[in-house]
Design a protein around this nucleic acid. Structure first.
Lengths: 204, 204
DNA sequence: TGTACATCAGTGAACGCGCGTTCACTGATGTAC
DNA sequence: TGTACATCAGTGAACGCGCGTTCACTGATGTAC
């Protein structure tokens, strides 16, 4: 596959590399600005290109935004994967800690995810892709609950666990008058209660 | 207090009544349009007045939006209050059903709440008001958990329970390819798992 | 009673802005002969 | 080797739009004398 078409391949690889640069610039902007304030012009400025150039790489704004989100989602998936595969008796506390910590520190992904979940104007195709990413999370948690010897079906448990952790992140994000460190600690404390209650469940 | 100033009183009552009409128009618009797409002009059109008139009643857009949210929050509070005060042995399942059902059917309030929770640009004063409303919810759940004879402190339980229910609502709102009725049923099923796990908690 | 004045809800028009997207163009690079 | 052509990333300017907010004005109502 690589011995012919090498020139064309190289070109499309370069194109992908440039796409990636734009996505990374977007992530940096999202980390700093509220989701609905981020504009194509902001991202272009951060990437050091003209805002018209963005349209050489993405058909429209929504596509770029969704791609930026998936970068983060993949990273979380990898972290969870490691934690869950590492041991035969994984610790639910460690998993929820990792999930909460990552999304508390990189809260642009949480804001993106929530925005997409609440936004009715997402195209069906994008929604489907988003849903597929969610299902990946559920799969990871399924694996966790199976290792914890929870009775089948474990999928509803995964739904509830994922939703509950999301809720903690969203609900306590904006606690006024607390430092980020205090907020994070509070989230972890509340997540601990959820861990424990899920640990106790024996039948669904 | 009412025997003097009656004319002035009447006037300010009328003013409040007109404010209320605008807020109700806003709620109707929010029920139908994504939060970040709702404009002052939309609300004015729905209320049957000029968009400039809105500024006779609200200093700016954010204030109107926040007021509209509080109308809904008060209604949920009343529903929960009734359910929790009704019985000495309240059923946590009924309470979470009521919470989920109301916010699944009137999901404009959920979207508003989530938007405010995620939005960094809310003024401190508004954030504080929002937080006070949240604390009201926590208080209700505290009462519930005390009646369920959970060990003190119950406040962390309330935090976790509120956050988890919120998470369920947000996470499953946009399940693609499901009817609203199926979505609602799924939310109730997942909430049931959370209820049960909280019922089992005996020490925090 | 009439008259001059104050108050204030309501409004259409305008301001100024930032946005997503498109367009016509430039210039670098590679290709064909 | 040079030359004519094709491709395509990149761009500044412009389009068209909707927005929040302000402004100057109208007209109804009440008040003072």
């Amino acid at each position: 596959m690589k011995q012919n078409n090498t020139f064309a391949d190289l070109k499309s690889e370069e194109k992908l590399a440039r796409q990636k640069i734009i996505i990374q610039a977007a992530e940096r902007v999202f980390a700093v600005k509220p989701f609905n304030k981020v504009s194509i012009r902001d991202i272009a400025r951060e990437a050091g290109i003209s805002h018209a150039s963005i349209y050489r790489y993405f058909p429209d704004q929504q596509s770029l935004f969704v791609e930026a989100f998936f970068r983060g989602a993949e990273e979380i998936e990898q972290i969870l994967d490691q934690l869950i595969n590492d041991s035969d008796t994984p610790d639910i506390g460690k998993i929820s800690d990792a999930f909460i910590s990552y999304l508390a520190d990189n809260d642009q992904y949480l804001r993106m995810l929530t925005h997409f979940m609440l936004d009715g104007s997402l195209s069906t195709e994008k929604l489907e892709k988003l849903n597929a990413a969610e299902r990946h999370f559920f799969d990871k948690f399924d694996k966790l609950f199976r290792k914890m010897k929870k009775p089948e079906p474990v999928r509803p448990l995964s739904h509830a666990f994922f939703a509950a952790l999301n809720g903690v992140l969203i609900t306590f994000r904006n606690y006024p008058g607390r430092t980020p460190e205090e907020v994070r600690q509070h989230m972890l404390n509340i997540a601990r209660i959820i861990d424990r209650s899920f640990s106790n469940i024996q039948q669904t």
